[in-house]
Amino acid sequence: MHSAAPFDALLLLSFGGPEGPDDVIPFLRNVTRGRGVPPERLAEAGAHYRLFGGVSPINGQNRELIAAIEKDFADAGVGLPVYWGNRNWQPYLGDTLRRMADDGVRRAAVLVTSAYASYSGCGQYHENLLAARAETGAEAPVLDKLRHYYNHPGFVEPLVDHTVAAFDDLPAGVRADARLVMTTHSIPVATAETAGPEGGAYVAQHRETARLVAEGVARALGREHAWDLVYQSRSGPPHLPWLEPDVNDHLARLKADGVPAAVLVPIGFVSDHMEVVYDLDVQAAETAATLGLPVARAATTGADPRFAAAVRDLVLERAAALRGESPDRRVLGALGPSHDVCPLGCCPDPRGRGAGLRGAALEAVPPLSS
């Protein structure tokens, strides 16, 4: 038996996605609430979802991940129930937190389906948790968000294997010289500069994951492949600088430089969702076809059993730390394990709205750690 005390539950916290055509526009309204996005822009984005029947794959993959975690917990003797709440669609975080309180959960570890430091991938989820706890009231469980896991072997090693497998989808004659194109969600440059306790963590962490994946691929294939970190899914106004290069522009540059093929590796995403299946499998694939550049796309980590085991590692190490013990923190590479408790000012809201919300929520309920 592995002790998870003081935790009595795990909460999987994710972005959420529509599960039918009627869900698409309401979901997009949730995502863009308060940003003044015009209806015609929502309709344009909604068309991407309708190519896939109005269903984002993220909820289905979260169900698969929960099943994998539950199996891993059971096999390892970790007696924690797993709950699931979303930021933008059912099951909503607030509803899940109320159910947890009704079930008698008093303290829960929280796994966010974002492996890296940034406002949208960490700071905003903190605010979601705080707001949901404030709405739940005095019975709300204490919540401990688990550390960033971009360099945990259970996240990286499936990406390596999936990248190696993707080479089989390229013509045999171009595989040896194919370029690895590591992709992640673009964010505003100003947000990237303030990510993490000292700034710059979003890019630094992605570059570390990209390096680890490339090294793993080289070991598996017996040859090195050059790699680049590129960005996708930009959604902000054109006058604001966002991280570049865009994946489509980068593919054109590779073609111009004589690179014979590319493997797209979505290291920035825990599981497939619309930014993967549309922006890579549709848009980037169309760009590559127009260029005459053979491309293949590696799968995301998803519900791989090694990632489920990594979740168990993260829960148990955090539980041990809370008990005053010295946990074994598994990481790859040179950056070491991320912090457990986010320092004040870490990953701030670029719109300057985080501090007030966090303060109000903290006054309403017991303190949130991490």
Rank of each mutant, 00 (worst) to 15 (best):
L10P: 14
L12V: 05
L12H: 01
G16I: 03
D22V: 08
V24I: 01
R35A: 14
G36D: 10
G36E: 02
G36W: 07
P39F: 01
E40K: 09
A43V: 08
A43D: 08
G53T: 00
G54T: 07
P57G: 02
Q61E: 12
A68G: 09
I69Y: 06
G77C: 07
P81N: 08
V82R: 03
R87H: 12
G94R: 14
D95M: 14
R98T: 09
R99W: 00
A101D: 02
L111T: 03
A115E: 11
Y116D: 01
A117V: 11
Q124R: 10
Y125F: 07
L129D: 07
L143F: 01
K145M: 12
H152A: 08
F155H: 14
V156R: 03
T163E: 09
V164R: 02
A165F: 13
L170R: 14
A172N: 08
G173S: 11
A178W: 06
V181A: 08
A192Q: 10
T194N: 13
T194P: 06
G196C: 04
E198V: 10
Q205S: 00
H206L: 09
R207V: 01
E215P: 13
R223I: 00
R234L: 15
G236M: 02
G236S: 07
G236Q: 04
L240S: 06
L243E: 05
E244P: 06
D249V: 05
L251I: 12
R253L: 13
R253E: 14
A256M: 14
P260F: 11
D279T: 04
D279H: 08
V282F: 03
A285N: 15
A285Y: 10
T287D: 05
L291M: 05
A303M: 10
A309E: 09
A310N: 11
V315K: 11
L316K: 03
E317F: 03
E317V: 04
R323W: 03
A334I: 15
G336W: 05
C346D: 15
P350K: 03
R351S: 07
G354V: 13
S369W: 15
